[in-house]
Design a protein around this nucleic acid. Structure first.
Length: 249
DNA sequence: AACATGGTCAACCGCTAGTTA
DNA sequence: ATAACTAGCGGTTGACCATGT
């Protein structure tokens, strides 16, 4: 495998993005999508490397980004998922709609890890970081499930009922991804240069077709990676006891 | 008021995996 | 089969800000 060539340093701007650059990137992606990040800055007229554009879009400009502090539930979800998935931030982020892997990583390193260490040092092994009694794995699991439902993604079937035996009414990992893939962003959004970024982003909420039938479950799909395995486990298992087999890390 | 320290978070770096020719 | 290339991921950095001394 060839080594990916580094971004051309010559003439490439680095550091914080300006509002003007943001607007250019947003407008371009609205119009043309982002099928080729490397070529994007050139076509859009940005003096940034494709990597930088991609990062800026994913971590900051994407319309479904949820700004603001993490809720206690979200924090607990991160902790629970981290216990299972480790430092797989993108996988954890996939379970927290509106949150980015970068953001979750930051929160983990700046808040949660410290709080956990503190709790452990103080012998608080029966409580979670929010001080909520954590008596069973079933309780813990319900927190993971609930965290996918609030705010933007409450518009579909994202409330995962682990007791629900009807897989046709549940979302697969791919289904969730489908909600936020590039075709979604590029297809449904029209450009309006007259408005501020924030306004436009707000307006995008709810554009997902709530009656969409894309949420069908594919029983025959294979487990492509661990993430899907765990997701499968979370969403289909009616027997919470299965988690008792998960080793503590 | 000035400086030191620590926390936060956006952005960058280097790597791997996947895709294409 | 393999080299070239891109996208995406996780680790790390550094600028900025708040707070403490």
């Amino acid at each position: 495998m060839g080594r990916a060539p580094c971004c051309e340093k010559m003439g490439m701007k680095r550091g914080p993005w300006t509002p003007e650059e943001d607007q250019i990137l947003i407008n371009y992606i609205h119009l043309y999508g982002h099928s080729n990040w490397r070529a994007l800055p050139k076509h859009a007229g940005l003096l940034r490397c494709g990597k930088s554009c991609r990062l800026r879009w994913i971590n900051y400009l994407r319309p479904d980004i949820k700004r603001g502090n993490f809720t206690p539930q979200e924090e607990q979800t991160i902790i629970n998922l981290h216990e299972v998935l480790g430092n797989r931030w993108s996988a954890i982020a996939a379970k927290l709609p509106g949150r980015t892997d970068n953001e979750i990583k930051n929160v983990w390193h700046t808040h949660l890890k410290k709080r956990l260490n503190k709790n452990q040092n103080s012998g608080g092994d029966t409580k979670d970081i929010n001080g909520i009694n954590e008596t069973t794995r079933e309780d813990k699991e319900s927190v993971i499930v609930d965290a996918t439902s609030p705010q933007q993604f409450s518009n579909s079937v994202t409330t995962f009922d682990i007791s629900n035996n009807n897989k046709d009414e549940m979302m697969s990992y791919e289904d969730i991804s489908a909600l936020v893939d590039e075709s979604f962003w590029s297809d449904v959004v029209s450009v309006d240069n007259s408005n501020s970024n924030e306004k436009k982003i707000e307006d995008w909420d709810g554009l997902i077709d709530r009656n969409s039938t894309i949420y069908s479950y594919n029983n025959s799909k294979l487990y492509n990676d661990d993430m899907e395995f765990w997701f499968e486990l979370f969403t289909t298992s009616r027997r919470i006891e299965v988690f008792s087999d998960i080793p503590e890390f």
